[in-house]
């Protein structure tokens, strides 16, 4: 679960948010898209119900004359987030940014979802798991850190393994874990889609909720 998705165009284009999955609770989700200047280019409801691969719910962001990054902000109930299949756009780069994630929702019975990330240059990994520990694997599946074995025992302390910038790592949760990080982290399920947002738009500083109340 996340609420902020960062995407990047490689060329100016119209692109789509494509929702597939089951959003079990009314009324669904609310989506906003901001360009890297902080302009809201789309605001729309995503209705609840089942959106199939054959009949996804789509929202189109028109071409705007610039190849740029966008931030997709979603608002709604947790169960509706967990029902969405990722990625949600048809852009080549898409990461899920935040300081707090619910990870480990099974994709199939008995399976747990691993999520990938890289550290941007100069960034350090510092996190704690609520509701359980987690392991960090490298791209070959080797364990490079284990928050239960290697992490601090004090309540509230952050787990800070030495990870290398630019290297793909995987977080491997044994169950659903709520992951809190000191610095915003960008996650992906597909390392090929990972990118480090430029930071031109800091959604945390944007009053993204303004102007939609009328």
């Amino acid at each position: 679960m996340f609420d902020t998705c960062c995407v990047r165009e490689t060329q100016d284009q119209a692109w789509r948010i494509r929702i597939v999955g089951v959003l079990p609770r009314g009324p669904g989700l609310f989506a906003m898209v901001f360009d890297q200047e902080g302009r809201r280019v789309l605001a729309a409801e995503i209705p609840f119900g089942t959106h199939t691969e054959a009949k996804p719910f789509t929202l189109t962001v028109p071409a705007d004359g610039a190849a740029q990054e966008y931030v997709i902000k979603l608002v709604g109930q947790q169960d509706n987030f967990t029902g969405i299949r990722l990625p949600i756009t048809d852009l080549p780069f898409e990461v899920y940014r935040g300081r707090y994630f619910a990870i480990g929702y099974p994709t199939a019975p008995g399976q747990l979802r691993r999520v990938a990330f890289k550290l941007a240059p100069g960034m350090k990994f510092a996190a704690q798991g609520h509701g359980g520990g987690f392991r960090i694997l490298d791209d070959r599946g080797e364990v490079v850190a284990d928050s239960v074995k290697d992490g601090p025992k004090e309540r509230g302390a952050l787990f800070e393994p030495a990870l290398q910038p630019g290297v793909t790592y995987w977080i491997d949760p044994p169950a659903i874990v709520y992951l809190g990080t000191r610095d915003p982290l960008c996650l992906t399920f597909d390392p090929d889609r990972w990118f480090a947002p430029s930071g031109k738009l800091d959604i945390d500083k944007l009053r993204w909720w303004k102007g939609l109340g009328q």
Binding site: P27, E45, R207, W209, K210, L212, G213, Q214
Partner: peptide, 26 residues
Amino acid sequence: LTCPWRYYFAAAEYYDDPSTSSYKAA
């Protein structure tokens, strides 16, 4: 009896706080 989304955004704007916590107006 479906409350529109804009009620949430309006509340967030009036309190300048979009928090969906149970201890917040929004």
